[in-house]
Design a protein around this nucleic acid. Structure first.
Lengths: 215, 215
DNA sequence: CCGCATCCTCATGGATACTG
DNA sequence: CAGTATCCATGAGGATGCGG
């Protein structure tokens, strides 16, 4: 940590001492999706100052959350989560599920990165049992996200270019990018619900739509 | 939120805009345990400045996370979570589980509040199926926490004074307060594991003890 | 007492420029 | 590419005041 600690013998306080400062969890988000280099992080975190990113990476490393790896020779440093750091997935997914009401206003002028959808989709489908071989794909901002559900649960992968798409598959198109159509746009609530049904968990998204809304 | 928003169309970023600032999640922690008044929060959050606490309470209220209630006549304002704010329980419990390795060094000079253990115990036992009628109690810092497990899962309640304790019940004593004996102290790891076994989930705590450790 | 608001100081974050 | 150095704006922390 870089700021002053809470100095409380409470797991939440000590966890926040490690990952509670500004940008820290967003860096973890990026590395939960895939390991990244400094410049990748800079691009994925618009608005972060370069010194602050460097500082946070140091903090997270000394905190045992991430580690520096040497990429293939000639390539620079690659940051990745440690085993313990990867354990933040549950926390991040819980926050992503909690945040769905905040997504309904749509992107507005906010930055958009298609790969964020991978995590969001995974979080929304996490822990849900799915029918084997059920498949959907979501095309958004030129990237196709494929949800392939089997006995081990749903998995989300990114396919680019879209040409890699397997043949007979339901593809939902959404522009601008949306979290399963939660924002107003070309993907309607009905379509999103249908997508969840296809993914093997009928009613899952209907439940999400009826969450208590924020102001 | 009070600071500047991340301006990212990502659920995590938007969630952190609401509850990501300093002290916010610790306030949520307190209200997850029970509704509280301003002075209760001040006492439970040592180190927080009074103006900052007031500011955060305003932020969380306009964010739809908490609400002000009028206590019984003569009593002041009571803060409580909204339905949506209560949805942060999953996030907080995930962080509490993730943080267990950070608790092994013990309290040191950190502040200690027995009621924090209620949440921690609940988080550690969350989602685990338990044998009906299995019961343990943990006495720490003058408070007795009772874990009563039934079909709906384990529940943790605080009993004070200890005299209220039902008759034939296993009581583990720990001083100073510990998270199920994870810290060095009078409650050994073996006792804590035995406590988890009693609570109906053999091996649960053994699993926690073998998590990858932080630096 | 309780529930804040004000004032002040200093650490932290943000933006930009620069370097090995 | 992967950061450091610098400067300024902002927010945190501590003390104190004050109306109900």
């Amino acid at each position: 940590m870089s700021g002053k600690p809470y100095a409380q013998y409470c797991g939440l306080a000590r966890a926040l001492d490690v990952v509670g400062e500004r940008w820290s969890l967003l860096i973890v988000r990026e590395l939960l999706i895939r390991p990244a280099r400094y410049s990748d992080l800079l691009a994925a975190l618009p608005g972060v100052a370069t010194n602050l990113l460097a500082q946070r990476l140091r903090d997270l490393e000394t905190g045992g959350v991430i580690e520096r790896r040497l990429g293939r020779p000639g390539q620079g440093v690659v940051y990745a989560l440690t085993d313990w750091g990867a354990g933040l997935r549950e926390t991040v997914e819980a926050l992503l599920r909690w945040s769905t009401p905040l997504m309904t206003p749509g992107p507005g002028s906010d930055a958009v990165r298609p790969h964020w959808l991978e995590l969001a989709l995974t979080a929304l489908l996490a822990g849900r049992t799915a029918v084997p071989a059920a498949e959907i794909a979501l095309e958004t901002a030129g990237t196709v996200l494929m949800v392939r559900a089997d006995q081990s649960g749903p998995a989300v992968t990114a396919l680019a270019p879209p040409a890699e798409l397997p043949g007979a598959m339901t593809v939902l198109r959404a522009e601008p990018p949306v979290i399963l159509g939660l924002a107003a746009g070309t993907l309607t609530a009905e379509q999103a619900i249908a997508a969840a049904d296809l993914a093997g968990d009928p009613g899952a998204l209907r439940q999400i739509f009826t969450r208590p809304a924020p102001p």
